[in-house]
Nucleic acid binder design. Structure first.
Lengths: 134, 134
DNA sequence: GTTTGTGCAAATATTTTGCACTTGA
DNA sequence: TCAAGTGCAAAATATTTGCACAAAC
């Protein structure tokens, strides 16, 4: 009657993805993560990259956002608290900006209109100092 | 030497799309707009729906946003001023909420981090009073 | 009559899924 | 052992594009 010890397994692929995410501070697409891992000689499939990222997002280990172009971009969270991102649309570099102000504002607006079960989406895209200069 | 009067042409299809958008207050997908027009007996192609919506967005005649599911949703703007939306994820109904607070906040954060050429994305998804009750 | 719009079919892009095989605990 | 993870190929989804034809001005 032992519980089957269900849980996440420590695989080579998962470790490689986490390691890559840890050494970058940019939002990356699944494809670009896949490409880099392949270039680094890791054997991994694109499907696995997608599935692992999905799991990491569900576990709140990484942040996702959709780029204006419609791609999902992933990055490791720096803070535990809820926050938003200021993302460079050219290089993907991002600053985390705290969100209490917007939070309060959104909650108030929602209450006013009788909305429930909110899920916010606030991402500010722009050009970072470096990319904006070029 | 007359200028070729370049501009948007008043076509049957364009009129049908605008009429539909005028008589609804929900965010609609291109596909659902297409389906309804077809059901109403209008001859129109999905491609045309996409292309027309694109043009209307460019002309700032309609608002677009991406649903959490990754679809583009379209609705006619009610106000000229910049604003955000509180969108029901079930029925697509939406309230427009003014954005000066968030605007100021975003601009400040951007300035602080040296970002330029901003484009905000703030949409709050939730369940409207009706859908939340059911 | 010329330019812009239309619509089909095909292409693209991103992400997901079926399924047989591998691997970690 | 054996449930969980992997990866290929194929499917699914949403949107765009090439091109011949039609419609607007």
């Amino acid at each position: 009657m032992n519980a089957p010890a269900s849980g996440v397994r420590a695989t080579r692929q998962r470790a490689a993805i986490l390691a890559l995410l840890d050494r970058t501070d940019r939002f990356r697409s699944a494809q670009s993560i896949f490409d880099e891992l392949r270039a680094d000689g890791h054997g991994i499939g694109l499907t696995t990259v997608y599935r692992t990222l999905q799991a990491l997002v569900a576990g709140e280990v990484v942040d996702v956002l959709r780029s204006p172009a419609g791609e999902s971009l992933y990055r490791r969270c720096e803070t535990e608290e809820q926050h938003h991102h200021l993302v460079c649309r050219r290089c993907g570099i991002a600053a985390e900006i705290p969100g209490p102000v917007v939070e309060a504002w959104a909650r108030e607006a929602a209450a006013h209109h009788g909305f429930s079960e909110l899920s916010r989406t606030l991402e500010v895209f722009g050009l970072c100092r470096l990319c904006g200069t070029r």
